[in-house]
């Protein structure tokens, strides 16, 4: 038997919004320690890795490890039936064919239940090597979303260049060029408003704007995003999810032909 109750049901709604445009379907792997999801987009350019720890749920029970293959468009339909202030409980039997989503209003006088058919997904899991990144940037997630949105008007690719002086995002296309430079913050009142750069060596890499814009759909999950870069390896874009876990996006760079 599997049961996971989340009083802050809006978090699960936001998580789904953060992955549903990138992934058509995905396996939710449930174990005693929590729920994990790892999936590539259809083009195999990016990878989503989601971890929700069991201790972040208000109630969590998982007697046997189980994998629930879900169509994310179907799950989105169900999540639209859940109010932002409602409590979500996910339930499934051992070796399940279906998963049940139960939504409770805060005062308990309305309970909705939706049962969704599961899919058999033969998804490969990829091993993500431990990496000491050359540059790790922490910045306000809203600022990152804004930069991705602004620069993607000009070209399909964005160059991210990080040095000790700061970080520069740039693009070029038919109508011209654009760039945004962010300096490391010297002093801030609020930590989540800071731009913090931890740099071992400078890095310049090129990425597809389309994917970065997709990752930015996780912005409502966290005020801060971290970008980890090293030469010739995928970029990691991480959003922490309150006290429960994180969503990480890995994006393969554009490389010299």
């Amino acid at each position: 038997m599997f049961e996971a109750r989340l009083v802050q049901g809006a978090l699960l709604k936001k998580i789904l919004e953060a992955i549903k445009d990138l992934l058509t379907e995905a396996s939710w792997d449930c174990a005693q320690g929590g729920i994990q999801l790892q999936a590539m987009d259809n083009s195999h350019v990016s990878l989503v890795s989601l971890t929700l720890r069991s201790d972040g749920f208000d109630k969590y029970r998982c007697d046997r490890n189980l994998t629930m293959g879900m169509n994310l468009a179907s799950m989105t339909k169900i999540m639209k039936c859940c109010g932002n202030d409602e409590i979500i409980t996910m339930k499934a039997q051992d070796e399940p064919d279906t998963v049940t989503f139960m939504f409770e209003s805060k005062n308990g006088d309305k309970i909705s239940e939706y049962e969704m058919k599961l899919m058999n997904l033969d998804q490969d899991h990829l091993g993500i090597p431990e990496t000491d990144y050359a540059c790790v940037i922490k910045m306000p997630s809203g600022e990152f979303a804004r930069i991705c949105r602004d620069l993607s008007q000009f070209g399909e690719s964005m160059v991210i260049a990080c040095s000790k002086n700061g970080i520069k995002f740039s693009t070029s296309g038919d109508i011209g060029t654009g760039n945004v430079k962010l300096a490391q913050t010297s002093s801030v009142d609020k930590e989540e408003e800071a731009v913090i750069i931890e740099m071992q060596e400078p890095v310049t890499l090129t990425f597809a704007c389309k994917y970065l814009n997709n990752f930015a759909k996780a912005t409502p999950l966290s005020p801060v995003v971290s970008l980890s870069l090293s030469p010739d390896v995928p970029l990691v874009v991480e959003y922490k999810i309150e006290d429960i876990g994180y969503v990480r996006y890995y994006l393969a760079p554009k490389i010299e032909d």
């Binding site: 590539m40 350019v45 490969d124 090597p129 390896v233 995928p234 393969a252 554009k254």
Partner: peptide, 14 residues
């Protein structure tokens, strides 16, 4: 010219 790399070039199947 740059071409888009695949994520599977970097991360191997488990």
């Amino acid at each position: 010219l740059r071409k888009q790399a695949s994520i599977t070039c970097f991360f191997r199947k488990k």
